[in-house]
Amino acid sequence: MKIGILALQGAFIEHEEIVRKLGATVIEIRQLSDLEEDIDGIILPGGESTAQGKLLKELGLLQVLKEIIQSGLPVMGVCAGLILLAEKLSNDTKQHLGTLPIKVKRNAYGRQLGSFSSQSIVKDIGTVPMTFIRAPYIEEVAPIVEVLAKVDEKIVGVCFQNQIGLSFHPELTNSFKVHHYFIELCKKNSLKNL
């Protein structure tokens, strides 16, 4: 399994470490030629969504990445990555990839001081520790989107086709359950395409 990890900005190294521990190969996505690698899935990490979106555009990655995701490549967007995937943002006019039919509220839990940890059930995965840092939450989902997790009645995890969107940071905990689930999704998708 080869997992691409967007490595332009943000917390990508933590994802890389977990993916390697789970036995998959990591491909850092920094430029257009990196997307020519034969990857089985891609992780869009947390960080600063505005900076990541700007870099994706400047480096010519935005449209190509959008097309790859729309063609079925599994993707997991975490925090800023969720914002990049969202079709709509309730408190911003920007749209980045726009492949996930949801509406997201950026920095919904406030600034850094509003960061917190929780534990909650994620559908098909079980109870997982969740770390929220200046996190968004999902305000609306299209009927075709499956809600995977809620915390305090707010949607913090969704799945649509091969796209997983999370408000929280699974890479900042000692649980590998979410990454394992994503890698299994990549394996199933890869077998389906053989």
Rank of each mutant, 00 (worst) to 15 (best):
D38I: 09
I3A: 06
A149P: 00
A108F: 08
M1H: 05
I42E: 08
L194M: 12
E28G: 12
K94W: 09
E184H: 11
K88I: 07
K192E: 14
I125S: 03
K150T: 14
G10P: 02
I102G: 01
L65Q: 02
I164Q: 00
C159R: 10
P45Y: 08
I121S: 07
K187I: 15
V147N: 07
G77D: 08
E184Y: 03
L185F: 05
K103F: 00
I42R: 14
P170K: 05
P45N: 14
Y109L: 02
C79W: 12
K188N: 13
E140A: 11
G10C: 06
V141A: 06
G10Y: 03
S167M: 11
E16N: 13
F12S: 02
H180P: 00
N174F: 10
S33N: 15
Y181I: 12
E17R: 11
L6W: 04
E36V: 14
I39Y: 08
L172M: 11
K2H: 09
D92V: 06
E58N: 15
T50Y: 03
A135T: 15
V64H: 09
I121T: 14
L65N: 03
M76C: 12
M1E: 13
K123G: 01
E153V: 07
E87M: 01
K150A: 10
I42F: 07
A108W: 01
G126W: 01
I29A: 02
V158D: 09
G10E: 03
D92F: 10
E67D: 15
K103I: 02
V158R: 01
K192W: 07
E153F: 10
V104K: 04
L185D: 01
V78L: 11
D40P: 07
G114A: 13
T131V: 15
H179L: 04
I3L: 08
K154E: 12
V178R: 01
I102S: 00
S175P: 04
G47Y: 00
D40Y: 03
I155C: 02
G46T: 04
E153Y: 13
K2G: 04
D152T: 07
S71E: 15
Y109E: 11
F176W: 10
K154T: 06
I183N: 05
R30H: 13
Q70N: 15
L194K: 15
E16Y: 10
A11F: 07
L97D: 00
G81L: 06
L100P: 14
P143E: 13
I29V: 13
Y181M: 03
S175M: 02
P136G: 13
A80M: 10
T127A: 13
S71N: 14
L73T: 08
H179N: 08
V122Y: 00
E139C: 00
N162W: 05
T25C: 13
L55K: 11
A108D: 01
E184D: 15
G10I: 07
A24L: 04
V19N: 12
K21P: 06
E146I: 05
N91T: 12
L35I: 08
P170T: 07
F116A: 04
K94M: 12
E87K: 10
G23W: 11
T50H: 07
I18K: 15
L89A: 03
E139M: 00
L56D: 00
V64C: 06
F160W: 05
G165Y: 02
S90D: 02
A142D: 04
S115T: 06
Q9M: 06
E17C: 00
Q163K: 14
G72Y: 13
